[in-house]
Write a protein that binds this DNA or RNA. Structure first.
Length: 1007
RNA sequence: AGGCGCGUAGCUCAGUUGGCAGAGCGCCUCCCUUACAAGGAGGAGGUCGGCGGUUCGAGUCCGCCCGUGCCUACCA
């Protein structure tokens, strides 16, 4: 007997989100490889805080992880964060700009320091949000895509791919963002339809015999034209092939990328790629600024003239227009062309423009030297197709595998270099003497210290010139692998675990360097790795060219595409490239949950890396969920101001309501339209559950458990609710195993609200509040009291048992409220509801007979309530009722107290003749009569019955038609025909009944 | 230009081998009944986008069309 008061989500959620993390409840040190269930979180970007999409993503994962954990699995769910190259650089850059600081002014090193200051802030904020959401991740395994371990994994992966010939460097056409000043991969280009212009320009023939007319959408690129192309079979222009044109405007020197001078006299070439039907059938060729022209230029050996710089400003090759922004240049060039009579006409033209997916700047195709991952290689591409085709990886819903396959089929090589600062710097050092391209990873060094120092330098943690003290202090600073690690801890645990004896401090380091520099070491090693500077007292770590031995090396400036490291996420988080126990036990993961927008960016690329390096898929099931949109179906974005912040929602409605709402809304479609109202509805549900718990706890005797063996046998409603709950458990388990979150959640909602609260709890009050009759003898009274006591114990045990099981079923969806309520129950044992067994279907607990009787009882009570309502009898008014029944007779007698209570009757008496002056209702064979009193209004009832009659007539007509259709009788299955016949009989009986009642009512209402 | 999805109650959506159209919210009526007014009881509301086909029978399977959203694509 205790009162837990009113539902207050804030207190509950705050207490548990903290204690779960502090107790490391979801940390599994040594998972068994057979019973494990392993998942890696799609790492959120450290660009700010979580949005609703993240909330959905982690909620679904948490539901599944909690479910599997309760099914007895060793669930390891690895959390972590993505350094998010361009995105994070963009965020920090903007912050600096607001303080009037320019990134280019302070330089790379200083800027990266600022980013490293920002990262922990964002990381902490997101971590807190995840905890608030109640995610059951193993925080001891937290990782970051730019932590020491990942950097090492990335260098290792780069090296292997490079050595296998799967990474190459080359000069190609790439999409270039002039705002972020970097190359982008094809995937990072967003195409958008825009209204533009098509300019028709005259290019005069060199011999003065006329001109050809070319059409272009980007006239500014004409300054870089080095040819004009026509289709070789085009009758109009065929004869012009080989002739020369004078490029308008250009009367200055242009230099090609190879340094040669390019005259403004350009050839007309024939090329199949030209479509005669577009424009004039003549196309200008700018090999350095258009992807197709690039191909054409290479094919015909044309010079490449760049006319723009990295910021999309015109360069020296643009002569008079040098220094102008591309759009200003376009305007000026068009004006000049018009002045000089080269512009024939301008048409409106709608076309697709490529934009940067981050900053939406219109991209410029540029020729530049970039690094590529040769994903078109069969070792990558064919494997990636095979694992899905053969079902080693399963997409849910299934149709995404088709989309995946199509994309992989059309793969082009992936540009992985970025000209930004924030990210994994490419581990390549160029020799300034012989030009050799050197690739270094710590595997190039034998000694532990060398490996260590190399990694620190490669990660930019120490400078090339350093002191042992600096190294030691860095090693003892916090690691980015995990906030509670030092850098040294990390190296010991993951990298150098084979060398446990290695103690690293300033002294041993100094000793190491001294030894390294002594004459003996130099003799044995030929050349020392370290150069000592006696003035500065610093050491320099020496890399030597693998070709010529020169020490004059310079590291590649470019960093890797952020997705290159994310692609290693399911490997790196488990310690790869080391053969760690985690890698052995937890790879491949069992499940990946993500949105369809990153199937190509991330999912496919994890498949590339996983299958290549591990010879095994990175995950088995890929559950693809919808994207969150606002109530109008628009994407949520800060600029539109239509975001619904999960933090605000949790504050107002609670994490449990947020989670349950998202689970219910997770249909297999493509998007979820969200409005704040949805959360309100499910907060009511949480409240309902709370109050059910409150009711039960209020009515439990404090000594219940010790009295348990002694009790009265269960009643029909007990068996009924047991069956219902059992069936609910079956549906929920089945739904979850099919990733049908919505079905599982709705089923639970339905059970809690419509069965448990609406009916069972109401029924339970009969026994809980039972009192002995009055005017009894002492003896009789004692017997009755004993019986009531026994009944009370039974119903309390039932309530307790049913509720406890319900909480367990609900726990994956609403972890906080279920934990709290469960802990309040006298049966609570162990640390947490999340560690006890999940209920499953039990064949023994199906009581069909009891279930049918109680369902029938509900119908009867419903019919009486309906009549009361039609007669406008106030709910609080108890009425006298008379009834007639045949098959239902026993049932009515058995459940007399239930009917009296739930239908709010003063009495229910059987009669054998129709009462005079009474209005009636029925439910099948159960007929009942309310004595007609003054003030009872019949109109509503009459119209209610009239509507019912109409409906019946409609159904009857269609049924009769069906049954008179010979084809139906002949061809439909027998049971179908029988069902129709039975229904016809029932409808006819009901119709007679309704007509009879209507007649009586009409008589009564018009005296 | 190809590909994928969606059109069912006022709104958001369920509807699993074809066999009597459902839920939540909203709306209407009545009630603050000792867990819960964040509640209880009852109720209204639908030619399942359109046309055609298969079938005894179609929201469900097939075809075409209309509307709508998204993804992919080098059309100057």
């Amino acid at each position: 007997m205790k009162d837990i008061g009113q539902y207050n989500h804030k207190d509950i959620e705050k207490a548990y989100s903290k204690s779960w993390a502090e107790e490391a409840l979801y940390s599994v040190k040594e998972p068994s490889s057979e019973r494990r269930f392993s998942v890696v979180i799609p790492p959120p970007n450290v660009t700010g805080s979580l949005h609703m999409g993240h909330a959905l993503n982690v909620t679904l994962q948490d539901v599944l992880c909690r479910w599997h954990r309760m099914l007895g699995k060793d669930v390891v769910w690895v959390p972590g964060f993505d350094h998010a190259g361009i995105a994070t650089q963009y965020v920090v850059d903007r912050q600096l700009q607001e303080r009037g600081i320019n990134r280019l002014d302070i330089g790379r090193e200083e800027f990266l320091k600022k980013v490293w200051e920002w990262v922990p802030l964002s990381r902490r904020a997101i971590r807190e949000q995840l905890e608030k959401l109640g995610v059951s991740v193993d925080w001891f395994r937290e990782r970051f895509t730019l932590d020491e371990g990942f950097s090492r994994a990335v260098r290792h992966a780069f090296r292997k791919l490079y050595e296998e010939g799967l990474i190459y460097k080359g000069e190609y056409m790439v999409s270039w963002c002039p705002k972020d000043v970097t190359a982008l991969s094809d995937l990072e280009v967003e195409h958008e339809e825009e209204d533009g212009k098509l300019y028709y320009i005259r290019y005069p023939l060199e011999d003065g015999s006329g001109f050809v007319l070319v059409a272009t959408t980007r006239p500014e690129t004409m300054l870089g034209d080095t040819a004009v192309a026509v289709h070789p079979e085009d009758e109009r222009y065929k004869k012009l092939i080989g002739k020369k044109l004078k490029l308008p405007l250009v009367d200055w020197k242009r230099r090609a990328m190879d340094g040669s001078e390019v005259p403004p006299i350009i050839p007309i070439v024939g090329d199949e790629r030209v479509k005669p039907e577009f424009g004039t059938g003549v196309v200008k060729i700018t090999p350095a600024h258009d992807p197709v022209d690039f191909e054409v230029g290479r094919f015909h050996g044309l010079p490449f003239v760049q006319v723009m710089d990295a910021f999309a400003c015109m360069n020296d090759n643009a002569g008079d227009f040098a220094g102008l922004d591309r759009y200003l240049a376009r305007k000026k060039i068009v004006e000049r062309l018009e002045e000089l009579g080269f512009l024939e006409r301008v048409e409106n033209h709608r076309h697709a423009v490529g934009k940067c997916y981050r900053c939406k700047t219109v991209l410029e195709p540029m020729v530049s030297t970039q690094w590529f991952f040769k994903v078109s290689d069969p070792r990558i591409k064919e494997t990636a197709k095979r694992v899905v085709r053969d079902g080693l990886i399963r997409f849910i819903p299934e149709n995404w595998s088709k989309i995946y396959m199509q994309w992989v089929e059309n793969l082009k090589d992936w540009c992985i270099s970025r000209q930004i600062w924030w990210g994994h710097r490419i581990p390549v050092w160029y020799c300034k003497d012989c030009g050799h391209e050197n690739l270094f990873t710590d595997e190039d060094f034998d000694r532990v210290y060398d490996k260590l120092i190399f990694n620190l330098i490669a990660d930019g943690k120490i400078k090339e010139e350093f002191t042992p003290e600096e190294v030691a202090s860095h090693l003892n600073s916090p690691s980015f692998v995990h906030p509670e690690f030092t850098v040294l801890d990390f190296y010991k645990k993951f990298v150098f675990y084979r060398y446990h004896s290695t103690e690293v401090d300033a002294n041993s380091l100094r000793l190491f360097f001294t030894q390294d520099l002594n004459p003996m070491a130099i003799l044995t090693e030929k050349k020392s790795r370290y150069k000592y500077n006696p003035h500065q007292k610093t050491y320099r770590f020496i890399l030597r060219c693998k070709n010529c031995g020169s020490e004059n090396l310079k590291q590649e400036e470019d960093v890797l595409d952020t997705w290159f490291s994310s692609a290693l996420w399911p490997l790196g988080t488990f310690g790869w490239p080391e053969h760690s126990p985690d890698l052995k036990n937890l790879y491949p993961t069992d499940l990946l949950v993500t949105g369809f927008d990153i199937i190509f960016f991330w999912v496919a690329r994890m498949v590339f890396m996983g299958t290549f390096f591990m010879k095994e898929v990175p995950f088995r099931d890929v559950y693809i969920h919808a994207l969150i949109r606002d109530e109008k179906g628009q994407k949520m974005s800060k600029t539109k101001g239509n975001v619904i912040d999960p933090l605000e929602i949790m504050e107002k409605y609670g994490a449990d309501s947020l989670r349950f709402t998202l689970a219910v809304l997770t249909q297999q479609g493509r998007d979820i339209k969200l409005s704040e109202k949805r959360f309100e509805g499910y907060k009511h549900f949480a409240n309902k559950l709370w109050n059910a718990g409150r009711f039960i706890l209020l009515n439990l005797d404090s000594d219940l458990l010790s009295n348990l063996p002694y009790s009265a046998p269960p009643r029909a409603e007990d068996l009924w609710i047991t069956t219902k709950l059992n069936k609910t458990a079956r549906v929920v388990n089945e739904a979850l195993s099919e990733y049908d979150f919505s079905e599982a959640a709705r089923e639970l909602y339905e059970f809690v609200w419509s069965e448990l609260c609406d009916w069972y709890i109401e029924f339970s009050k009969l026994r809980l509040y039972a009192k002995p009759e009055e005017n009894l003898t002492e003896e009789e009274r004692r017997v009755q009291e004993e019986k009531i006591r026994a009944e009370r114990i039974t119903v309390q045990a039932m309530l307790l048992g049913v509720f406890e099981k319900t909480l367990r079923l609900l726990h994956p969806f609403m972890p906080f409220i279920t934990e709290k309520l469960w802990q309040e129950l006298p049966t609570a044992h162990g640390r947490s509801i999340s560690l006890v067994q999940y209920p499953h279907f039990n064949e023994q607990e199906v009581y069909e007979e009891a279930e049918r009787r109680v369902e029938r009882l509900k119908e009867i009570i419903g019919a009486i309530r309906s009549l009361r309502s039609d007669l406008r009898i106030e709910p609080s008014k108890k009425i006298r009722l008379f009834y007639k029944a045949r098959e239902s007779l026993k049932l009515v007698e058995e459940f007399m107290p239930h009917i009296l209570s739930l239908a709010r009757l003063e009495s229910l008496q059987e009669v054998f003749v129709l009462p005079e002056r009474a209005v009636a209702g029925f439910s099948e064979d159960f007929e009942f009569f309310v004595p007609l009193e003054e003030g009872i209004r019949l109109e509503e009832l009459i119209s209610s019955y009239s509507r019912r009659l109409q409906e019946l007539e409609k159904q009857l007509t269609s049924l009769e038609e069906k049954l008179s259709n010979e084809n139906f009788l002949r061809r439909a299955p027998e049971e179908e025909v029988d069902r129709a016949r039975i229904m016809l009989e029932e409808l006819k009986r009901e119709k007679l009944k309704v007509e009879e009642l209507l007649l009586a009512l009409r008589r009564a209402s018009s005296p």
